[in-house]
């Protein structure tokens, strides 16, 4: 059970004056239950890449396998693929259209051809997963706050009961509280239901905290594919691509330059705090980390 890309290449506007490589020979395999961070500069091809994973875009060349089946094979059921690989776009405004939150979340499962009771059951469960209670059901999705709209949008995809959930910058433009809530819910989905999650983000802190694997795209090519810890060690290369490592990495590096022998693989604030505290001989505050996660 996995997603596997083989030499995936996508060219926009092939054969016109505006021809442009959006993806160039991208290869990877995503196992079930991974939490993957996907980063890249604007225009690096990450949005193009995720739209391939549920078949919205077709590669110019190369193959994509979902659970061992080639999705470009003739007769492959794209609609079924899209309910297995859920994709949440960046702007919830692009998908919210119904008169109330509940019917909007019902849209996905209804398209899957389920019975009415089952559709509503799915919608209720999805809204519960994103932490929206019944008081929201009858509200217009357009009157919600930014964070609530995002959650309705995520619920709209979760209601289709996907095996893989892909999110394109789900926290862009949210306040810190809204961001932590959404990421916390994703973390729970990953931990409790074993859902594969692919998170596109510009926040290295978020990636460092949640992802167990990090893919870095640059000019349509995959340049890094490793644990966040290993990738962030090459922060100089990341910077040359217009990216960066988490703030903590820079503090750790600065400390090392000052001759303090701190581990250079620390990427979250909590890890660094614990390391520093243990170096000055104080007990570490494990309990607080749990609360933040």
């Amino acid at each position: 059970m996995s997603i596997k890309a083989v030499n995936l290449t996508h060219i926009y506007g092939e054969g016109t004056a505006f021809e442009q490589y959006a993806l160039r020979d991208v290869n990877f395999e995503i196992e079930d239950g991974q939490f993957i961070g996907l980063i890249g500069h604007t225009g690096s091809g990450k949005s193009t890449l995720i739209q391939h994973l549920n078949g919205l875009l077709k590669a110019t060349s190369g193959e994509l396998y979902y659970n061992g089946e080639n999705i470009y094979a003739p007769g492959y059921d794209m609609k079924a693929l899209r309910s297995k690989v859920g994709l949440v776009f960046q702007y919830p405004e692009h998908q919210l259209f119904e008169v109330d939150v509940f019917s909007d979340v019902c849209f996905g499962p209804k398209n899957q051809g389920l019975k009415k009771e089952e559709v509503e059951e799915r919608a209720r469960k999805a809204l519960e997963l994103v932490g929206l209670d019944e008081s929201f059901y009858a509200q217009s999705p357009f009157e919600l706050s930014g964070g609530q709209k995002r959650r309705v949008a995520i619920a709209g995809v979760l209601a289709m009961d996907p095996e893989v959930l892909i999110l394109d910058e789900p926290t862009a433009g949210l306040d810190p509280k809204g961001r932590d809530e959404i990421l916390g819910q994703l973390e729970r989905l990953h931990r409790d239901r074993g859902m594969t999650i692919i998170l596109v983000s510009h926040s290295m802190e978020d990636i460092a905290r949640y992802a167990d694997r990090l893919i870095v795209m640059n000019h349509g090519e995959k340049v890094f594919d490793d644990t966040p810890r290993n990738v962030f060690r090459s922060y100089k290369e990341l910077e040359s691509m217009g990216l960066a490592a988490p703030q903590v990495t820079y503090i750790v590096q600065a400390l090392r330059r000052e001759g303090i022998p701190i581990d250079d693989s620390l990427i979250t604030v909590e890890e660094a705090r614990d390391a520093i505290l243990s170096m000055v001989g104080l007990k570490t505050g494990r309990t607080e980390k749990k609360q933040n996660a």
Partner: peptide, 16 residues
């Protein structure tokens, strides 16, 4: 472009 994005977002939810 906007229509294209909306179409994709709805197709991702199984719209036809």
């Amino acid at each position: 472009e906007e229509a294209d994005k909306i179409m994709k977002a709805q197709m991702a939810r199984g719209a036809d």
